[in-house]
Amino acid sequence: TFTSYQLEELEKVFQKTHYPDVYAREQLAMRTDLTEARVQVWFQNRRA
């Protein structure tokens, strides 16, 4: 599960791009204290 802060950050990036590159995902992962893999999976699920 994600915190409301994490979801907010993820959604913010999703609004800009549905396909963030690895750099964007790593920045987001650091900001949200998630792994890059978790961020990647979240985007895959969000796009589905």
Rank of each mutant, 00 (worst) to 15 (best):
A24V: 14
Y23H: 12
R38P: 01
L28W: 00
Y19P: 15
P20I: 05
T3P: 02
Q40L: 14
A24F: 11
A48L: 13
E11V: 11
L34K: 01
Q6W: 02
D21K: 04
L7A: 12
H18E: 07
Y5I: 07
E8H: 09
E11L: 05
R47M: 05
Q44Y: 10
A29E: 03
E9N: 03
L7Q: 07
L28Y: 00
D21C: 06
D21Q: 04
T3I: 04
E11T: 03
R31K: 11
R25E: 03
F43D: 01
E11S: 03
T1D: 11
F2H: 03
W42E: 01
L28P: 00
V39N: 01
T17L: 05
Y23F: 13
V22W: 11
R47K: 03
F14R: 01
F2I: 08
A24L: 14
F2T: 02
Y23K: 13
E9I: 06
Y23R: 13
L28I: 08
R31V: 09
F14K: 00
E11D: 04
A48V: 09
T35S: 15
A37H: 11
T3C: 06
K12Q: 06
F14C: 01
Y23A: 11
A48T: 09
L34P: 11
M30F: 10
E8I: 10
W42R: 00
D33I: 07
E11Q: 04
A37T: 09
L7G: 03
Q27Y: 07
E9C: 07
L10D: 00
D33T: 07
Q44N: 09
L10Q: 00
T1I: 12
L34C: 04
Q6L: 02
A48Y: 08
V13I: 09
F43T: 00
N45Q: 14
E11M: 15
R25T: 10
L28Q: 00
E26A: 12
Q15K: 10
A24C: 14
R46M: 06
T32N: 03
K12A: 10
D21A: 05
F2C: 04
F14D: 06
R38N: 15
Y23G: 07
V13A: 13
T3G: 03
Y23W: 12
Q6Y: 02
E36T: 08
K12R: 11
Y5E: 08
Q40T: 11
S4A: 14
D33E: 12
T3M: 05
Q44I: 11
M30D: 07
K16N: 09
T35I: 04
E8W: 08
V22Y: 14
H18N: 09
L34F: 01
A29L: 05
V13Q: 08
L10C: 05
Y19A: 04
L7S: 06
V39I: 15
L34T: 05
E26Y: 13
Y19L: 03
Q40G: 07
V22D: 09
R47W: 04
K16V: 14
V13D: 02
Y23P: 05
E26F: 12
L34Q: 03
Q6G: 01
E8S: 10
H18L: 05
W42Y: 03
E9M: 09
D21N: 10
D33Q: 13
T35Q: 04
T3R: 04
K16S: 09
R38G: 07
Y5N: 09
F14W: 15
Q6T: 03
L10A: 01
Q44K: 12
L28H: 02
P20S: 01
R47D: 02
V22N: 09
H18I: 08
E9V: 06
R46W: 02
Q6N: 02
Q15F: 06
Q6F: 14
Y19S: 05
V41Q: 15
T35H: 04
L10S: 00
L28M: 03
V22A: 14
F2P: 03
V39H: 00
F2D: 01
E11N: 06
Q44F: 08
L34E: 01
S4F: 09
W42T: 14
A24D: 10
S4Y: 09
R25Y: 07
A29R: 06
T35C: 04
E11H: 03
R47H: 04
F43H: 00
